[in-house]
Write a protein that binds this DNA or RNA. Sequence first.
DNA 1: TTTTAATGTAATCGT
DNA 2: ACGATTACATTAAT
Lengths: 199, 199
Amino acid sequence: MASTSLPSANTAASQNCQKASGSMENKATHSSFSIESILGLEQKDEGIPAAKPHRPWIDTCNNLVLGEDGNPQTQLSAISCERPLLHANNYLMQQERLLKCEKYFSVTEKVSYKRELSWYRGRRPRTAFTRSQIEVLESVFRVNSYPGIDVREELAHKLDLDEDRIQIWFQNRRAKLKRSHRESQFLMVKNTFTSNLLE
Amino acid sequence: MASTSLPSANTAASQNCQKASGSMENKATHSSFSIESILGLEQKDEGIPAAKPHRPWIDTCNNLVLGEDGNPQTQLSAISCERPLLHANNYLMQQERLLKCEKYFSVTEKVSYKRELSWYRGRRPRTAFTRSQIEVLESVFRVNSYPGIDVREELAHKLDLDEDRIQIWFQNRRAKLKRSHRESQFLMVKNTFTSNLLE
DNA sequence: TTTTAATGTAATCGT
DNA sequence: ACGATTACATTAAT
C-alpha cells in the first residue's frame, strides 16, 4: 500500500476567494455575455495564439517526457511540442482527432478542447519537491526571502534542481506569505469589529 | 484510482539537465550567506505564522456552521480557525476520537488519520449542486469553459451560489474534460496499435 | 466503488 | 518581481 501518502509537507494558508477580472484567453468577455445570451448563442470567438516562450523540457521530436515517478502528464506531453507546430503537421493530426471525436462532442466542446490543447501544450511538468528539499528551501526563506542569484544557484546545485525552479518557488512562497498576512489582517479587523459590537 | 498513486515523495530530479551553473563561489555580496551557515544557525525567529486561510464559513466564535444541506462536518468546521488551537483543547477531542477508532485502524492508519484531521479542519463543507444548477453550468461550459469574472458573478447570482463555487466548478470541469480526452486518446492509440497488429 | 467538490501549490502570463 | 489565474495532484465526501 502506498504507505505515507504525504503529498504536501506544509499545511499553510490557502487561497480561496480569488476573484479578479481578466481570465487569460478570455479577454473578449463582452459585458453582453449574459447567461441567456450565452445559452442561446453560438460563439465563434477564438484564437488568441499567444506567443510561445522557450520550452526546453519538451522534446521537439514527439518523444515522451519522463517524470521519474510515472507522472501522468507523459501521454499528453507527447502530443506536440511547440506553438509554431500548432500550424504545422501536428495541427492536421489534431484536426483529424477532432473529426474523429465529432460524434461524441459538440462543436463548442471541440472548440474549447482546441483551446485547452493549445494552452497547456508545453506546460512544464509540475515539479514535486521532496520533503527535504522543502525543508531546506523553507529554512533559507526564513532567513532571506529574496535570495540572490548566487544563493539560488547554490541551492539549485545542492538540491539538484533547476535554478529556475528555485526562483519560482521563492516567488510563490512570497506570494503565499503575503496572502497569509492579508488574511490575518482581515481577521484581526473583523474580530476587532465584532468585539467592538459586543461591548 | 487513488490506490495506484505514488506518495510523490521523490521526483527530486525529474528535471532534465541543469542550466550549467557557473561559479559556485559566492559573489561576496554577503559571503556569510552560505547554505550551510543558514541551515546551521539556530532558527529562533520562526515568525511566519502561516495563518488564516480566510475561511468565511467558519465562525470565529465556535458557533455552528450552517451547511444548507445538513452537512456532518459541522462539528469539525466549528472547532477552530487558528493554528495555535491545534494544540489547545481541540487536541484532546481528537485524541479521544482517535481512541474510539482504535479498534478499527492500524497504528499507522491512525497516525495518518491524525495528520489528516488536523488537515481538513476548516475544509469547506462539500457543496451539493442541484440538478438544475448543474444543467446551467454545463450549458455555459459547453459554450465557454473559461468564463470571466462577469459571467461567473452572473451565474453566481442566478444560481444562488458563491462565485468561488462557480470558479472551482469550472476548474474541476475542465480537469474532467481533459481526463476524458486523455482517456479517449489512450483508447485511440491502443486501437491503432491493435489494428496494426492485426493486419 | 466511483465521482467530484475542495485544497495546496507549481507554473504561466501580463504588467 | 508581483498579482492573478491556471493546471495539476491529491484529499475527502457522496
